[in-house]
Design a protein around this nucleic acid. Structure first.
Lengths: 121, 121
DNA sequence: ACATCATTTCGATTATCGTTGAAATATGGA
DNA sequence: TCCATATTTCAACGATAATCGAAATGATGT
């Protein structure tokens, strides 16, 4: 993921309503939810919802598909996965050991067998 | 992590300069970097940098400590860890199998993300 | 005290954001 | 066709964001 895309995704999520919307869609799973249901579930005016869904969509965080009169929105998990990867890459200059005191960089790669996560906060 | 804190952290990162600043600090490790060095490394005017560092600091993403004339800024990894946890919790309504087709929810795996935090409402 | 370096504060400017109300578009059914 | 439902588009508004230039603060060395 590029810096520009990361900023786009972060900006899209950096708003209370949009974060709620996204989380609702994430919890709903791949099947998605019609826009109206999102609106009533979160108490957002329909035109305002359109505005926010547009931003999430342009950031690649949700997809949309028509089904009858309804437009079904669903979370695009891949984008979140890429964003998380971007945020955690190059942690501590590639020396994860440095982050240890705070369990910072989630286990940098494949084998997550290395457990050393007794956070002391 | 609460919704409000998540929005604060996401907002702080949702800006090109601040994302660069944060990533620079992450790569620098726990030792941190003086503000001036950040400014010259990224080509940001010092007063503008202060503005951005303030936002990162208020979001809990960086810490600051004086050392001589310099103010050393460092990434607070714990906040990022909490943010990532917030973003990936309750993925697909707690049924990670649903997300499978796109490797959505980072491997809900064994020891991670099974901590009882607050209830999602 | 003075001069210098590092960083912050202040004031102003321009742009973008989130919301609203009203009107428009698209789909499906009588 | 006409009507109801579902969602979007448009125009406007106040609020906040990001940047700049100039001045102020704080720390250090002489």
């Amino acid at each position: 993921m590029e810096k520009t895309d990361a900023v786009a995704a972060l900006s899209a999520l950096a708003q209370e309503h949009r974060l709620e919307i996204y989380r609702l869609l994430v919890q709903a799973g791949p099947g998605g939810i019609p826009a109206g249901e999102v609106a009533s579930a979160l108490g957002i005016a329909p035109n305002t919802l359109t505005f926010h869904l547009d931003r999430l969509r342009h950031a690649g965080l949700v997809s949309v598909a028509r089904q009858g009169r309804s437009l079904i929105y669903a979370a695009r998990y891949e984008t979140m996965t890429n964003l998380l990867g971007y945020l955690t890459e190059n942690c501590c200059g590639g020396q994860p050991g440095l982050c240890e005191p705070s369990a910072a960089c989630p286990p940098p790669a494949k084998s997550q067998s290395r457990k050393r996560k007794e956070t002391v906060r």
